[in-house]
Nucleic acid binder design. Structure first.
Lengths: 203, 203
DNA sequence: CGCCCGACTGACTGGTCAGTCAACGGATCG
DNA sequence: CGATCCGTTGACTGACCAGTCAGTCGGGCG
Protein backbone atom coordinates (compact mmCIF):
# COMPACT_ATOMS: atom_id res chain seq x y z
CA UNK A 1 0.00 0.00 0.00
CA UNK A 2 2.78 2.43 0.88
CA UNK A 3 2.41 4.78 -2.10
CA UNK A 4 4.79 7.72 -1.85
CA UNK A 5 8.37 7.81 -0.75
CA UNK A 6 8.53 11.46 0.21
CA UNK A 7 10.04 11.95 3.64
CA UNK A 8 6.84 13.70 4.70
CA UNK A 9 4.56 10.96 3.53
CA UNK A 10 6.70 8.30 5.19
CA UNK A 11 6.33 10.23 8.42
CA UNK A 12 2.56 10.52 8.00
CA UNK A 13 2.26 6.84 7.43
CA UNK A 14 4.31 6.20 10.53
CA UNK A 15 2.13 8.59 12.52
CA UNK A 16 -0.97 6.66 11.54
CA UNK A 17 0.66 3.35 12.41
CA UNK A 18 1.75 4.65 15.81
CA UNK A 19 -1.69 6.08 16.47
CA UNK A 20 -3.23 2.74 15.55
CA UNK A 21 -1.02 0.98 18.08
CA UNK A 22 -2.15 3.34 20.82
CA UNK A 23 -5.81 2.96 19.90
CA UNK A 24 -5.63 -0.84 19.55
CA UNK A 25 -3.90 -1.07 22.92
CA UNK A 26 -6.41 1.13 24.67
CA UNK A 27 -9.69 -0.02 23.15
CA UNK A 28 -8.81 -3.34 21.53
CA UNK A 29 -8.85 -4.02 17.82
CA UNK A 30 -12.46 -5.13 17.76
CA UNK A 31 -13.80 -2.27 19.82
CA UNK A 32 -12.20 0.69 18.15
CA UNK A 33 -13.25 2.53 15.02
CA UNK A 34 -11.02 3.45 12.14
CA UNK A 35 -12.12 7.01 12.89
CA UNK A 36 -10.51 6.65 16.33
CA UNK A 37 -7.20 5.97 14.63
CA UNK A 38 -7.63 8.93 12.31
CA UNK A 39 -8.51 11.20 15.25
CA UNK A 40 -5.59 9.94 17.31
CA UNK A 41 -3.24 10.60 14.40
CA UNK A 42 -4.82 14.03 13.81
CA UNK A 43 -5.63 13.08 10.24
CA UNK A 44 -8.71 12.82 8.07
CA UNK A 45 -10.57 9.54 8.01
CA UNK A 46 -9.91 8.89 4.35
CA UNK A 47 -6.16 9.29 4.68
CA UNK A 48 -5.95 6.09 6.65
CA UNK A 49 -7.17 4.31 3.53
CA UNK A 50 -4.70 6.22 1.42
CA UNK A 51 -1.85 4.56 3.30
CA UNK A 52 -3.39 1.24 4.30
CA UNK A 53 -5.54 -1.29 2.54
CA UNK A 54 -7.83 -2.00 5.48
CA UNK A 55 -8.16 -1.97 9.24
CA UNK A 56 -6.94 -5.57 9.26
CA UNK A 57 -3.95 -4.56 7.16
CA UNK A 58 -2.84 -2.08 9.80
CA UNK A 59 -2.83 -4.73 12.49
CA UNK A 60 -0.97 -7.13 10.20
CA UNK A 61 1.74 -4.56 9.71
CA UNK A 62 2.07 -3.75 13.41
CA UNK A 63 2.45 -7.43 14.17
CA UNK A 64 4.85 -8.34 11.37
CA UNK A 65 7.11 -5.35 11.95
CA UNK A 66 7.71 -6.39 15.56
CA UNK A 67 7.66 -10.12 15.10
CA UNK A 68 10.27 -10.01 12.34
CA UNK A 69 12.62 -8.13 14.65
CA UNK A 70 12.18 -10.88 17.19
CA UNK A 71 12.81 -13.60 14.61
CA UNK A 72 16.06 -11.87 13.69
CA UNK A 73 17.15 -11.84 17.31
CA UNK A 74 16.34 -15.52 17.70
CA UNK A 75 18.27 -16.29 14.52
CA UNK A 76 21.20 -14.25 15.76
CA UNK A 77 21.17 -15.87 19.19
CA UNK A 78 20.99 -19.34 17.69
CA UNK A 79 23.95 -18.64 15.44
CA UNK A 80 26.24 -16.96 17.94
CA UNK A 81 28.86 -19.58 18.71
CA UNK A 82 30.32 -17.63 21.61
CA UNK A 83 27.15 -17.92 23.70
CA UNK A 84 26.09 -20.61 26.13
CA UNK A 85 22.58 -22.06 25.85
CA UNK A 86 21.48 -20.06 28.87
CA UNK A 87 22.86 -16.87 27.34
CA UNK A 88 21.07 -17.56 24.07
CA UNK A 89 17.76 -18.02 25.81
CA UNK A 90 18.47 -14.97 27.95
CA UNK A 91 19.20 -12.94 24.83
CA UNK A 92 15.83 -13.78 23.32
CA UNK A 93 13.98 -13.22 26.58
CA UNK A 94 15.76 -9.91 27.05
CA UNK A 95 14.75 -8.71 23.63
CA UNK A 96 11.10 -9.53 24.24
CA UNK A 97 11.04 -8.08 27.73
CA UNK A 98 12.88 -4.95 26.61
CA UNK A 99 10.50 -4.57 23.68
CA UNK A 100 7.80 -4.43 26.30
CA UNK A 101 9.79 -1.93 28.34
CA UNK A 102 10.19 0.40 25.41
CA UNK A 103 6.94 -0.22 23.53
CA UNK A 104 4.39 -1.71 25.89
CA UNK A 105 1.51 -0.80 23.58
CA UNK A 106 3.09 -2.56 20.62
CA UNK A 107 3.75 -5.70 22.62
CA UNK A 108 0.25 -5.68 24.05
CA UNK A 109 -1.21 -5.48 20.57
CA UNK A 110 1.09 -8.19 19.23
CA UNK A 111 0.30 -10.59 22.05
CA UNK A 112 -3.30 -9.82 22.81
CA UNK A 113 -4.70 -8.92 19.42
CA UNK A 114 -2.74 -11.25 17.16
CA UNK A 115 -0.92 -14.06 18.88
CA UNK A 116 -3.96 -15.46 20.67
CA UNK A 117 -6.72 -14.86 18.17
CA UNK A 118 -7.08 -18.45 17.05
CA UNK A 119 -9.89 -17.76 14.63
CA UNK A 120 -8.70 -14.63 12.89
CA UNK A 121 -5.26 -13.10 13.04
CA UNK A 122 -3.70 -15.89 15.02
CA UNK A 123 -4.70 -18.41 12.37
CA UNK A 124 -3.53 -16.11 9.58
CA UNK A 125 -0.09 -15.56 11.14
CA UNK A 126 0.28 -18.99 12.70
CA UNK A 127 3.17 -20.00 10.43
CA UNK A 128 5.07 -16.85 11.38
CA UNK A 129 4.36 -17.37 15.04
CA UNK A 130 5.63 -20.91 14.76
CA UNK A 131 8.91 -19.68 13.28
CA UNK A 132 9.73 -18.33 16.71
CA UNK A 133 9.03 -21.67 18.36
CA UNK A 134 11.15 -23.42 15.76
CA UNK A 135 14.05 -21.04 16.32
CA UNK A 136 13.92 -21.54 20.07
CA UNK A 137 13.67 -25.29 19.57
CA UNK A 138 16.83 -25.20 17.48
CA UNK A 139 18.68 -23.47 20.30
CA UNK A 140 17.58 -26.19 22.70
CA UNK A 141 18.31 -28.99 20.26
CA UNK A 142 21.87 -27.87 19.63
CA UNK A 143 22.54 -27.52 23.31
CA UNK A 144 21.25 -31.03 23.80
CA UNK A 145 23.69 -32.22 21.16
CA UNK A 146 26.65 -30.78 23.06
CA UNK A 147 25.33 -32.08 26.37
CA UNK A 148 24.76 -28.55 27.57
CA UNK A 149 21.08 -29.34 28.18
CA UNK A 150 19.47 -32.67 29.01
CA UNK A 151 18.36 -34.70 26.06
CA UNK A 152 15.12 -36.26 27.31
CA UNK A 153 12.82 -33.27 26.85
CA UNK A 154 11.72 -32.74 23.22
CA UNK A 155 13.21 -29.43 22.01
CA UNK A 156 9.92 -28.31 20.48
CA UNK A 157 8.22 -28.90 23.80
CA UNK A 158 10.85 -26.99 25.77
CA UNK A 159 10.58 -24.13 23.28
CA UNK A 160 6.83 -23.87 23.77
CA UNK A 161 7.09 -23.87 27.55
CA UNK A 162 9.84 -21.26 27.45
CA UNK A 163 7.95 -18.97 25.12
CA UNK A 164 4.73 -19.56 27.06
CA UNK A 165 6.47 -18.49 30.24
CA UNK A 166 7.61 -15.21 28.72
CA UNK A 167 4.24 -14.53 27.20
CA UNK A 168 2.46 -15.14 30.47
CA UNK A 169 4.84 -12.83 32.28
CA UNK A 170 4.11 -10.09 29.76
CA UNK A 171 0.41 -10.86 30.02
CA UNK A 172 0.49 -10.39 33.77
CA UNK A 173 2.22 -7.06 33.23
CA UNK A 174 -0.33 -6.03 30.63
CA UNK A 175 -3.37 -6.97 32.70
CA UNK A 176 -1.94 -5.98 36.05
CA UNK A 177 0.97 -3.70 36.82
CA UNK A 178 4.09 -3.36 34.74
CA UNK A 179 7.50 -3.28 36.38
CA UNK A 180 8.50 0.35 36.61
CA UNK A 181 12.23 -0.21 36.86
CA UNK A 182 14.43 -1.61 34.08
CA UNK A 183 16.12 -3.65 36.81
CA UNK A 184 12.84 -5.47 37.48
CA UNK A 185 12.65 -6.49 33.86
CA UNK A 186 16.22 -7.75 33.90
CA UNK A 187 15.44 -9.65 37.08
CA UNK A 188 12.48 -11.32 35.35
CA UNK A 189 14.72 -12.56 32.55
CA UNK A 190 17.23 -13.99 35.00
CA UNK A 191 14.51 -15.74 36.96
CA UNK A 192 12.85 -17.12 33.85
CA UNK A 193 16.07 -18.61 32.51
CA UNK A 194 16.91 -19.92 35.96
CA UNK A 195 13.47 -21.50 36.33
CA UNK A 196 13.50 -23.17 32.93
CA UNK A 197 17.13 -24.30 32.96
CA UNK A 198 17.79 -24.78 36.65
CA UNK A 199 14.31 -25.96 37.56
CA UNK A 200 12.37 -25.48 40.77
CA UNK A 201 13.86 -28.49 42.54
CA UNK A 202 16.32 -27.67 45.35
CA UNK A 203 19.86 -27.23 44.05
CA UNK B 1 -31.20 -15.01 33.86
CA UNK B 2 -32.04 -18.68 34.29
CA UNK B 3 -35.81 -18.35 34.55
CA UNK B 4 -37.48 -21.75 34.76
CA UNK B 5 -36.46 -24.75 36.73
CA UNK B 6 -38.39 -27.29 34.70
CA UNK B 7 -36.21 -30.18 33.63
CA UNK B 8 -37.04 -29.38 30.00
CA UNK B 9 -36.13 -25.73 30.26
CA UNK B 10 -32.86 -26.54 32.02
CA UNK B 11 -32.03 -28.81 29.10
CA UNK B 12 -32.91 -26.14 26.55
CA UNK B 13 -30.70 -23.67 28.30
CA UNK B 14 -27.88 -26.19 28.32
CA UNK B 15 -28.40 -26.87 24.60
CA UNK B 16 -28.03 -23.18 23.84
CA UNK B 17 -24.89 -22.92 25.97
CA UNK B 18 -23.34 -25.95 24.28
CA UNK B 19 -24.24 -24.63 20.84
CA UNK B 20 -22.65 -21.29 21.76
CA UNK B 21 -19.41 -23.03 22.69
CA UNK B 22 -19.30 -24.79 19.33
CA UNK B 23 -20.02 -21.60 17.43
CA UNK B 24 -17.56 -19.48 19.45
CA UNK B 25 -14.86 -22.08 18.89
CA UNK B 26 -15.46 -22.34 15.19
CA UNK B 27 -16.04 -18.71 14.24
CA UNK B 28 -14.70 -16.78 17.21
CA UNK B 29 -16.82 -14.69 19.56
CA UNK B 30 -16.44 -11.52 17.53
CA UNK B 31 -17.16 -13.08 14.18
CA UNK B 32 -20.27 -15.07 14.91
CA UNK B 33 -23.85 -13.92 15.10
CA UNK B 34 -26.31 -14.68 17.84
CA UNK B 35 -28.41 -16.18 15.07
CA UNK B 36 -25.60 -18.69 14.46
CA UNK B 37 -25.98 -19.86 18.04
CA UNK B 38 -29.74 -20.11 17.71
CA UNK B 39 -29.41 -22.07 14.46
CA UNK B 40 -26.78 -24.38 15.92
CA UNK B 41 -29.05 -25.05 18.90
CA UNK B 42 -32.05 -25.56 16.62
CA UNK B 43 -33.96 -22.86 18.42
CA UNK B 44 -35.60 -19.55 17.55
CA UNK B 45 -33.47 -16.41 17.74
CA UNK B 46 -35.49 -14.83 20.49
CA UNK B 47 -35.21 -17.83 22.79
CA UNK B 48 -31.53 -17.15 23.28
CA UNK B 49 -32.55 -13.89 24.94
CA UNK B 50 -35.13 -15.68 27.02
CA UNK B 51 -32.37 -17.66 28.69
CA UNK B 52 -29.46 -15.22 28.54
CA UNK B 53 -29.09 -11.52 29.13
CA UNK B 54 -26.76 -10.85 26.21
CA UNK B 55 -24.20 -12.37 23.87
CA UNK B 56 -21.49 -11.27 26.32
CA UNK B 57 -23.38 -12.95 29.14
CA UNK B 58 -23.21 -16.30 27.36
CA UNK B 59 -19.43 -16.08 27.06
CA UNK B 60 -19.13 -15.04 30.69
CA UNK B 61 -21.05 -18.14 31.72
CA UNK B 62 -19.01 -20.50 29.53
CA UNK B 63 -15.83 -19.10 31.04
CA UNK B 64 -16.89 -19.03 34.67
CA UNK B 65 -18.38 -22.51 34.62
CA UNK B 66 -15.08 -24.02 33.49
CA UNK B 67 -12.75 -21.74 35.39
CA UNK B 68 -14.51 -22.39 38.68
CA UNK B 69 -14.01 -26.13 38.21
CA UNK B 70 -10.31 -25.46 37.74
CA UNK B 71 -10.13 -23.27 40.81
CA UNK B 72 -11.68 -26.09 42.84
CA UNK B 73 -9.06 -28.52 41.57
CA UNK B 74 -6.24 -26.12 42.44
CA UNK B 75 -7.73 -25.62 45.89
CA UNK B 76 -8.02 -29.36 46.34
CA UNK B 77 -4.47 -30.02 45.14
CA UNK B 78 -3.07 -27.32 47.41
CA UNK B 79 -4.87 -28.77 50.42
CA UNK B 80 -4.07 -32.44 49.87
CA UNK B 81 -1.42 -33.21 52.47
CA UNK B 82 -0.62 -36.61 51.00
CA UNK B 83 0.72 -35.15 47.75
CA UNK B 84 4.24 -34.05 46.86
CA UNK B 85 4.73 -30.64 45.22
CA UNK B 86 5.29 -32.32 41.88
CA UNK B 87 2.11 -34.34 42.26
CA UNK B 88 0.13 -31.24 43.14
CA UNK B 89 1.33 -29.43 40.05
CA UNK B 90 0.74 -32.55 37.99
CA UNK B 91 -2.80 -32.77 39.32
CA UNK B 92 -3.60 -29.25 38.19
CA UNK B 93 -1.91 -29.71 34.82
CA UNK B 94 -3.74 -32.99 34.32
CA UNK B 95 -7.10 -31.39 34.98
CA UNK B 96 -6.44 -28.64 32.45
CA UNK B 97 -5.03 -30.96 29.83
CA UNK B 98 -7.85 -33.46 30.32
CA UNK B 99 -10.40 -30.66 30.11
CA UNK B 100 -8.96 -30.00 26.71
CA UNK B 101 -9.08 -33.68 25.85
CA UNK B 102 -12.76 -33.93 26.74
CA UNK B 103 -13.95 -30.45 25.78
CA UNK B 104 -11.50 -28.90 23.34
CA UNK B 105 -14.05 -26.33 22.21
CA UNK B 106 -14.71 -25.15 25.73
CA UNK B 107 -11.02 -24.80 26.49
CA UNK B 108 -10.38 -22.99 23.24
CA UNK B 109 -13.11 -20.51 24.04
CA UNK B 110 -11.90 -20.04 27.61
CA UNK B 111 -8.30 -19.44 26.59
CA UNK B 112 -8.65 -17.68 23.28
CA UNK B 113 -11.81 -15.65 23.77
CA UNK B 114 -11.56 -14.73 27.44
CA UNK B 115 -8.19 -15.25 29.05
CA UNK B 116 -6.24 -13.17 26.55
CA UNK B 117 -8.68 -10.41 25.73
CA UNK B 118 -6.93 -7.69 27.69
CA UNK B 119 -9.39 -4.98 26.76
CA UNK B 120 -12.69 -6.74 27.16
CA UNK B 121 -13.33 -10.09 28.79
CA UNK B 122 -9.80 -10.57 30.04
CA UNK B 123 -9.98 -7.30 31.93
CA UNK B 124 -13.43 -8.09 33.27
CA UNK B 125 -12.41 -11.52 34.58
CA UNK B 126 -8.86 -10.62 35.51
CA UNK B 127 -9.45 -11.09 39.24
CA UNK B 128 -10.85 -14.58 38.65
CA UNK B 129 -7.97 -15.45 36.36
CA UNK B 130 -5.53 -14.30 39.02
CA UNK B 131 -7.13 -16.60 41.57
CA UNK B 132 -5.61 -19.48 39.62
CA UNK B 133 -2.14 -17.91 39.73
CA UNK B 134 -2.52 -17.29 43.44
CA UNK B 135 -3.52 -20.88 44.09
CA UNK B 136 -0.55 -22.21 42.14
CA UNK B 137 1.73 -19.76 43.93
CA UNK B 138 0.52 -21.11 47.27
CA UNK B 139 1.44 -24.63 46.22
CA UNK B 140 4.95 -23.45 45.35
CA UNK B 141 5.30 -21.34 48.47
CA UNK B 142 4.40 -24.19 50.80
CA UNK B 143 6.80 -26.51 49.06
CA UNK B 144 9.51 -23.91 49.49
CA UNK B 145 8.73 -23.78 53.19
CA UNK B 146 9.35 -27.52 53.55
CA UNK B 147 12.45 -27.39 51.39
CA UNK B 148 10.74 -29.44 48.72
CA UNK B 149 11.36 -26.68 46.17
CA UNK B 150 14.15 -24.10 46.06
CA UNK B 151 13.43 -20.86 47.87
CA UNK B 152 15.05 -18.28 45.59
CA UNK B 153 12.37 -18.09 42.90
CA UNK B 154 9.36 -15.98 43.91
CA UNK B 155 6.33 -18.29 44.13
CA UNK B 156 4.13 -15.89 42.17
CA UNK B 157 6.69 -15.87 39.39
CA UNK B 158 6.98 -19.65 39.30
CA UNK B 159 3.18 -19.91 39.19
CA UNK B 160 2.97 -17.60 36.17
CA UNK B 161 5.64 -19.49 34.26
CA UNK B 162 3.99 -22.81 35.07
CA UNK B 163 0.54 -21.66 34.01
CA UNK B 164 2.01 -19.95 30.93
CA UNK B 165 3.65 -23.19 29.93
CA UNK B 166 0.36 -25.10 30.08
CA UNK B 167 -1.52 -22.40 28.26
CA UNK B 168 1.04 -22.29 25.48
CA UNK B 169 0.89 -26.05 25.08
CA UNK B 170 -2.88 -25.89 24.74
CA UNK B 171 -2.53 -22.96 22.35
CA UNK B 172 -0.22 -24.98 20.12
CA UNK B 173 -2.80 -27.76 20.15
CA UNK B 174 -5.59 -25.34 19.33
CA UNK B 175 -3.76 -23.62 16.47
CA UNK B 176 -2.00 -26.67 15.18
CA UNK B 177 -2.79 -30.32 15.78
CA UNK B 178 -4.18 -31.77 18.97
CA UNK B 179 -2.75 -34.96 20.39
CA UNK B 180 -5.08 -37.73 19.33
CA UNK B 181 -4.13 -40.19 22.07
CA UNK B 182 -4.84 -39.73 25.77
CA UNK B 183 -1.32 -41.05 26.34
CA UNK B 184 0.11 -38.04 24.50
CA UNK B 185 -1.71 -35.72 26.84
CA UNK B 186 -0.45 -37.59 29.89
CA UNK B 187 3.06 -37.43 28.42
CA UNK B 188 2.75 -33.65 28.05
CA UNK B 189 1.88 -33.29 31.73
CA UNK B 190 4.86 -35.39 32.78
CA UNK B 191 7.20 -33.40 30.58
CA UNK B 192 5.83 -30.09 31.76
CA UNK B 193 6.28 -30.94 35.43
CA UNK B 194 9.70 -32.38 34.68
CA UNK B 195 10.74 -29.25 32.78
CA UNK B 196 9.54 -26.82 35.44
CA UNK B 197 10.72 -28.79 38.46
CA UNK B 198 13.73 -30.64 37.10
CA UNK B 199 14.86 -27.94 34.68
CA UNK B 200 16.56 -28.29 31.32
CA UNK B 201 20.06 -28.50 32.74
CA UNK B 202 21.69 -31.93 32.55
CA UNK B 203 20.84 -34.10 35.56
C1' DC C 1 1.56 31.41 -15.34
C1' DG C 2 -1.04 27.19 -15.77
C1' DC C 3 -1.10 22.29 -15.53
C1' DC C 4 -0.60 18.01 -13.18
C1' DC C 5 -0.38 14.87 -9.66
C1' DG C 6 -0.50 13.15 -5.33
C1' DA C 7 -1.69 14.31 -0.54
C1' DC C 8 -5.61 15.06 1.87
C1' DT C 9 -10.65 15.66 3.28
C1' DG C 10 -15.07 13.94 5.31
C1' DA C 11 -19.91 13.05 3.99
C1' DC C 12 -22.10 9.18 2.54
C1' DT C 13 -23.51 4.25 1.52
C1' DG C 14 -24.36 -0.39 2.13
C1' DG C 15 -24.40 -3.95 4.99
C1' DT C 16 -24.34 -6.09 9.37
C1' DC C 17 -26.22 -7.50 13.72
C1' DA C 18 -27.53 -7.17 18.83
C1' DG C 19 -31.41 -6.88 21.10
C1' DT C 20 -36.78 -6.03 21.25
C1' DC C 21 -41.45 -7.20 21.14
C1' DA C 22 -46.00 -8.60 19.93
C1' DA C 23 -48.13 -12.52 19.24
C1' DC C 24 -48.81 -17.77 19.33
C1' DG C 25 -49.79 -22.33 21.43
C1' DG C 26 -50.06 -25.79 24.63
C1' DA C 27 -50.07 -27.17 29.31
C1' DT C 28 -52.07 -26.71 33.85
C1' DC C 29 -55.49 -25.35 37.10
C1' DG C 30 -59.80 -23.73 39.15
C1' DC D 1 -64.38 -24.62 29.65
C1' DG D 2 -62.05 -20.32 30.24
C1' DA D 3 -58.08 -18.13 32.36
C1' DT D 4 -53.35 -17.87 33.05
C1' DC D 5 -48.72 -18.71 32.51
C1' DC D 6 -44.60 -19.27 30.12
C1' DG D 7 -41.76 -21.31 26.64
C1' DT D 8 -41.38 -20.17 22.06
C1' DT D 9 -41.26 -17.69 17.58
C1' DG D 10 -39.00 -14.59 14.07
C1' DA D 11 -39.73 -10.13 11.85
C1' DC D 12 -38.22 -5.82 12.83
C1' DT D 13 -35.55 -1.65 14.47
C1' DG D 14 -31.97 1.22 15.59
C1' DA D 15 -27.25 1.77 15.90
C1' DC D 16 -22.95 1.20 14.32
C1' DC D 17 -19.05 1.32 11.20
C1' DA D 18 -15.72 -0.22 7.35
C1' DG D 19 -14.69 1.31 3.25
C1' DT D 20 -15.72 4.55 -0.95
C1' DC D 21 -15.49 8.50 -3.64
C1' DA D 22 -16.01 13.01 -5.51
C1' DG D 23 -13.74 16.65 -4.79
C1' DT D 24 -10.17 20.36 -2.64
C1' DC D 25 -5.64 21.96 -1.91
C1' DG D 26 -0.85 23.01 -2.72
C1' DG D 27 3.70 22.43 -4.55
C1' DG D 28 6.68 21.49 -8.34
C1' DC D 29 7.63 21.58 -13.14
C1' DG D 30 7.44 22.92 -18.03
Amino acid sequence: MAPRTTAASVEKRRAILDAAVRVFAERGFNHCRVSDIADEAGVAYGLVYHYFKSKDGILDEVFLERWNLMLEVIEEAAGDEALSARDRLAKVATFIVESYGRHPDVMQVVIVEVTRQANTFGRKHWATIQDAHTGLARIVERAQGTGELRGDIPPAFAAIVFYGGIEQILTSWIFGTSPSEPADRREAVVQLVETICGGLDPR
